[in-house]
Amino acid sequence: MGETDWRELKKGGMMRQREAGLFSVRLHVVGGQVSAGQLAAIHEAASRFGRGEVHLTTRQGVEIPFVPLESLSAVKEFLAASGVGVGTCGPTVRTITACQGCTVCPSGLIDAPALARDLDCAFYGRPVPHKFKFAVTGCANNCIKVEENDLGIKGWVEPGWRRDDCTYCGLCAAACPTGAIRVEEGVAVHLDASACIGCGDCTDACPTGTMAVAVRGYRLFAGGKFGRIPRLGVPILPVLRDPAEVVRVAAAVLDFFRARGRPGERFADTVARTGVEALVAHVGEAP
């Protein structure tokens, strides 16, 4: 087999192991959600085609290692019959990670799994200059660590204050973990948007409802990565209110990467080279 063939297999989620002739088969998982039926199929496939082992990856993926070259087609067909797809590797849009968001977690502000499915549907496996990782986290607790990803989406609350009925008790300021709120008693409550992390603790703490949710939505962080030289993604754009808008922006971000990224260059390095302003301008102009 030539190098090109190995690369094609890798793009299709079949990754060559150290041992000659053996492959680790990456499965298609979205937001770490796997049904019990799929787990049963994965169990059966690992026993039948591998060595009865399953590897849980660092990004919520599932791989079946020790599958011989001659069984790759068979394992793929077997899993497909149970609704389990084979994953991707190489210079493509990779597994989209997500927390359980507001569907399960009391802290969740957005439906992270649903947005992960939308992004997966639109972009999973699509070619890009280098691997591209999306992550969706439900709130400021950031269990998914979105800033480590090429494009991360975080559930976000923008608080808004109104004077009526405010007693200036200061609980909003006391609850704020970053000191973004200053109470001028009897006069006003001042919000420093640049220090706000969108957690919404102030709105939860307010006894009168005068510090309330003004916007609940999606904050995007672009240009993060881990690996050998880690870099944290930076916030771009105002808080988006609609998941469809997030998908539109994500498409524009990927267009920017395809247009400006060099082959083999991580998106973080592209953004560092062009400046984040160029990315924001491109996204703003995209239809």
Partner: peptide, 24 residues
């Protein structure tokens, strides 16, 4: 403590109780 405010206030409001006074 201030770091308990979010959880305590959320649960009180969800149960329909009313906070009538607060002091830091």
């Amino acid at each position: 403590r201030a770091d308990a405010l979010k959880a305590v206030m959320s649960s009180l409001k969800a149960a329909g109780h009313r906070v009538t006074a607060a002091e830091r």
